[in-house]
Design a binder for these strands. Structure first.
Ligand SMILES: [Mg+2]
Length: 278
DNA sequence: GCGACAG
DNA sequence: ATCTTGTCGC
């Protein structure tokens, strides 16, 4: 899995996105979504993957479920996974979504009572080159309501990180302030949101089974800090999982060819060793 | 043709 | 995404 995918693969992926896009529901479908304070909403999920610096094959996928409105962690699932696709802007889902679907299925299997009523996804939904970002992709594959939450603007359909955009950002004065992200086509693809007094906005878009207005309102209500708590917890916990793994004692086989799990360590045999950052 | 480009 | 501790500021 080295280098960019051939054009034939990207073409196949784009066709897959076009096919699945038909399943996206961009309206509210749940009763709690219509309530002023989301009465009836009890569990909000967050997903994310963390990667290892020099390792392009392993990552930690995490799914957390938080109580609502308390935002306390009710469930955590962190798992090392073998990444098979490189990151390509516009095709993030083909890198991350398989592991997220697995995590949702594990949750369904092991703790069905904790299944989240909505999932906040680290990335975009409709705010995407072909209108089918990772939040739509995960939503359609799991049929769970999903919201796309991006930390940076994906430049698509005329949207750019230009001076006009920076000026619009400056116009967001108070927490909760927003401005629409309108594509050349004239349709609103998403919303920039000022969360928790951060001058850097979040980019919210519809994933599945939720309206843009509800998506913005819910994300806003899940923010203790700039990043909404479900995604922040998934991010923190997946990163921590990797860190602990790298620092945990490892048994090196004393028999067979002498080989160090980490090249930097040089020759190692026998006893327990402990990995540390370089 | 060139540059931009979620994580 | 990742490399990175403490530190300056509200
Ligand atoms: Mg992330």
């Amino acid at each position: 899995m080295t280098g960019p995918p051939p054009a034939a693969i990207l073409s196949r992926w784009a066709r897959e996105q076009a096919r699945l896009k038909g399943g996206v529901v961009r309206e509210d479908t749940e009763e709690w979504q219509k309530e002023p304070s989301f009465a009836g909403l009890q569990r909000v999920g967050g997903v994310d993957l963390s990667y290892i610096k020099g390792d392009d094959s392993r990552a930690c996928a995490s799914l957390v479920v938080l109580s609502y409105p308390g935002l306390e962690v009710l469930y955590e699932d962190c798992r090392m996974v073998a990444v098979s696709a490189p990151y390509v802007a516009g095709f993030l889902a083909f890198r991350e979504v398989p592991f997220l679907v697995e995590a949702v299925q594990r949750l369904q299997q092991e703790e069905p009572g904790l299944k989240p009523q909505v999932l906040l996804v680290d990335g975009n939904g409709l705010l995407h080159h072909r209108g089918f970002g990772v939040a739509c992709h995960l939503g359609v594959l799991t049929d769970l309501p999903c919201i796309g939450v991006a930390k940076n603007l994906l430049q698509v359909d005329g949207l750019a990180r230009d001076e006009l955009h920076r000026e619009q950002i400056r116009s967001l004065q108070r927490e909760g302030d927003t401005f629409p992200l309108t594509g050349t086509s004239g349709s609103v693809l998403g919303m920039a949101l000022r969360s928790c007094n951060s001058s850097k906005p979040l980019y919210i878009s519809v994933g599945h089974r939720v309206s843009l207005e509800t998506a913005v309102r819910l994300v806003q209500s899940c923010c203790r800090y700039r990043i909404p708590e479900p995604i922040r917890q998934a991010d923190i916990r997946s990163r921590e999982y990797i860190r602990k793994q790298m620092c945990s004692p490892v048994k090196v086989p004393s028999s067979g060819p002498e080989r160090a799990p980490c090249p930097r360590l040089g020759k190692v045999t026998g006893d327990l060793i402990c990995f540390r950052r370089p």
